[in-house]
Design a protein around this nucleic acid. Structure first.
Lengths: 355, 355
DNA sequence: TTGTATGCGTTATCAT
DNA sequence: ATGATAACGCATACAA
């Protein structure tokens, strides 16, 4: 049942008070300079490096800035200095809370260093990424964070020509554009599969997101297969599924697997919130977890710790990837480091009641 | 149990190939013009409004652009034209998935219109917001989206002087800075409380986030109290709690309420994921929902639909707020509309098994 | 420590 | 339809 309370009242157009306040006329450095009785150059110095002007002048300038309500123009500053304090970030999706911790980590580090974050959503498409890269380069961003590791040739060429530092965070890429900060999707999937085997499960299914155009899904499938091979288990194709993201997909997957002729005794959901969806479905159907089927997940999202039973999962350093990524990016932007870097931040297995 | 696989290998510094590719030298409009055999002004026109140049010249320019790998410089363009295609957005938090739909809505609309999104996290602090507003104004953003509705005097003054359009989305503010697109927190809380009363519950508790410095929490408490008053129920202070965000808080709240001398028969969790945390705690303790206690939530987050039993909640137009907010902002930026506007997007009550 | 001249890459404006 | 010229507001490089 849905009860609606839609209300909409575009108010009568009330004009902005064009006369009230000092609206409009943006004050320039010159205005501050005149008021302080110094040259614009002195104002520029006072604002960017107070130690380069005399204390007396500094006070005058600060006062003038406040008096006229001066807000510097970074377009002009950036154009003149050929540097900006803006970093661009491209994420596959913004409605997916999976990327939130990484974005948050990036934002925190940038903010502390006085940089601004420009963000764009490319929808898992290399073409979308290319468009955003072009837009960000047009803004003359000082550096770029990319989640995807599969880029169009044009995007790669633009980035090469631009010569700005780039950090990729989606996975440990074989041939990175520049720098990489991530974890190994393959190693993580392999580790969880082996963990399930160590716990005694022998028919281990794996559900990933669609692998078409998704390197990470393929990496995880590879890790799953490698683990099975290493313990001498045969990889039954019926036990490897691909599903779109979402709780509903997880529910559907577990039903299909358990109602198949040879059901698994454990299911490793290697992506998104599939595992949570599967668990809720098991609750609805009264399928005991982990006795009838064990469930494992791929990401330490909050709910997995709180559901009944709590779900075993991999803990990936999502926020740390954002922080470290931003740090190495800033190191390069500010000339504290040269050359490329690859950082593997590893992962953890969190064993809980679902396995 | 936690099994760690930390691995880190900063690779040996591999210098960027400074000679490879056309690295470094950013091409300017002049280079394109020379190559195409026209003036820079013609290139500018061709790029921004192809209909203003002859088809033959357009082809020449497009070819030259591709040949030299030209990426326009929006710093210069913005400086010259006094306009940018960047919109700033200030959100209280980036790790909280609650704001994701709104951000996503804003991003989608801006992107479709050729605008870029600059985002900043103010941590629920008006001072943090002020700093971000200053930073965004320095970038000469074309418009601004703010979630908070409580601003510092300095921030308000800066915005007034800047004269750019501003949209507030946090709640329907009594005296908005400029434009507002939101829903009524008070009306929503009131509606859900009345809904619980209609279902027959008579001791209705309410748990909100801390109200200190949080207008929205206070609005919701006000709505809860108004509802009780309107049906002649007395507001027992022991039934109104404030808890920090998080699943754990919801769990703690429901335990404290149900173990109190006069426990409620329904609990309305008016914020964050408190309700989900409470439900999981009830599952752990074997407290039947809704017979022992009914649970209601304040936001239609995905898990509430999938848990057992699914949780009744309010459906707030979070994504729509982002989209409509960006639309009215763009209308003003691009001069399609003048004057301020207030839009109440309403809400819905979603009745499910938990009540 | 402070000031002067010049240029950053683009667009507005006016001219042709 | 196209071009010449002059800003836009600031920072670099040098001079005082």
């Amino acid at each position: 049942m849905v009860v609606s309370f839609p209300v909409m009242f575009p108010s009568p157009s009330v004009a902005m008070p064009d006369d009230a306040g000092a609206q409009g006329a943006a004050t320039r450095m010159r205005d501050v300079a005149q008021r302080a009785g110094v040259s614009p150059m002195t104002v520029s110095r006072a604002l960017r490096d107070p130690s380069k002007v005399s204390p007396a002048v500094l006070r005058l300038v600060e006062e003038a800035v406040r008096a006229v309500g001066y807000v510097p123009n970074r377009l002009a500053g950036g154009l003149s200095s050929m540097r900006t304090n803006v970093v661009g970030m491209v994420v596959p999706s913004l409605d997916n809370s999976l990327y939130s911790p990484t974005i948050q980590g990036v934002s925190a580090v940038l903010h502390a260093a006085g940089y601004q974050l420009m963000i764009g959503e490319c929808g898992h498409s290399p073409q979308g990424e290319e468009a955003l890269v072009a837009a960000f380069l047009a803004q003359r961003v000082a550096g770029l964070m990319l989640h995807g590791v599969h880029h169009t040739e044009a995007a790669a060429a633009m980035l090469r020509r631009a010569g700005i530092p780039v950090v990729e965070t989606g996975s440990l890429s074989a041939k990175p554009l520049d720098m990489v900060v991530s974890y190994s999707n393959e190693a993580a999937a392999q580790a969880m599969t082996l963990h399930l085997h160590r716990l005694g499960y022998r028919r281990i299914a794996c559900v990933t997101l669609p692998s078409a155009g998704n390197e990470r899904s393929r990496d995880r499938q590879r890790g799953y297969r490698a683990a099975l091979a290493s313990v001498g288990l045969e990889a039954d194709p019926a036990l490897l599924m691909e599903m779109p993201p979402g709780l509903a997909s997880g529910a559907e997957a577990v039903v299909r697997l358990l109602q198949s002729p040879a059901p698994p005794d454990a299911v490793f959901f290697a992506g998104d919130v599939l595992a949570a969806g599967a668990l809720f479905e098991c609750q609805r159907r009264g399928w005991a977890v982990p006795t009838r089927v064990a469930l494992a997940a791929f990401d330490d999202i909050d709910i997995l710790r709180h559901v009944v039973p709590p779900v075993s999962t991999l803990r990936l350093p999502r926020a740390e990837i954002g922080r470290r990524g931003a740090e190495v990016l800033l190191d390069r932007i500010e000339g504290r480091a040269a050359g490329t870097v690859a950082v593997d931040l590893g992962f953890e297995i969190v064993q809980r009641g679902s396995t």
